[in-house]
Write a protein that binds this DNA or RNA. Structure first.
Lengths: 97, 97
DNA sequence: TCAAAATATCTTGCATACACAGATATCAAA
DNA sequence: TTTGATATCTGTGTATGCAAGATATTTTGA
């Protein structure tokens, strides 16, 4: 979901997304998770990939943009995340019967 | 973490915890996940189990109370959850570089 | 009396996700 | 020409989650 959310804001590539997530404290998400996840999302039609030559050093970057299905899926995922995090917060803060 | 948090508040048993979590909208957590998870936590010393006869129908209930290691672990998990949910919320709300 | 329903736990089988580690490729700078 | 930064991808082991079903006990009601 986070990868999709980043891509929705603006197209990006794996390496850059790993760094962005890491900046937000989500450094548990390593490249070994990100690349397979991006591949899966492309295969299932949530995102579209295209290559862009790097301006600096390094091989071509595989950029991804969000697809129509991806926008829909992201909306659902956000709702699910909302419900999940709300529920978890209620439980860990001890507000339950 | 949610199971531990429930048990810390007051000792409980799997079936009851499943219902409590479900009330908070966490009905993704089915019994097929809860019982193995409780067993693992007992095996690793985070919680302690004991049997209590049911007052209504049904077989004896396996109650769990939190152990010393469990309290410590729960504190860590809460901190991790805090960092994770904060990070995810920043990303899905589009507040990143 | 006997069947059904509610309560409660546990196990097996399957799929999948992920982290870790390492392989690979490209280009710039020293 | 070697090092370092950038960038992607893959293989392996482990953990985990769920669905589904087996099992047990007691109450309720037909």
């Amino acid at each position: 979901m986070c990868l999709l959310a980043l891509i929705e804001e603006e197209p990006s590539y794996g390496y850059e997304m790993a760094n962005k997530l890491s900046e937000q404290g989500l450094d548990l998400v390593s490249e070994g998770s990100i690349y397979p996840s991006l591949s899966r999302m492309q295969r299932s039609g949530l995102i579209e990939g295209y290559f862009v030559e790097a301006d600096g050093p390094g091989p071509p970057r595989k950029y991804y943009r969000i697809a129509k299905n991806g926008k829909q899926r992201l909306k659902e995922w956000k709702k699910e995340w909302e419900a999940l995090s709300t529920g978890v917060n209620l439980v860990v803060k001890g507000e339950n019967g």
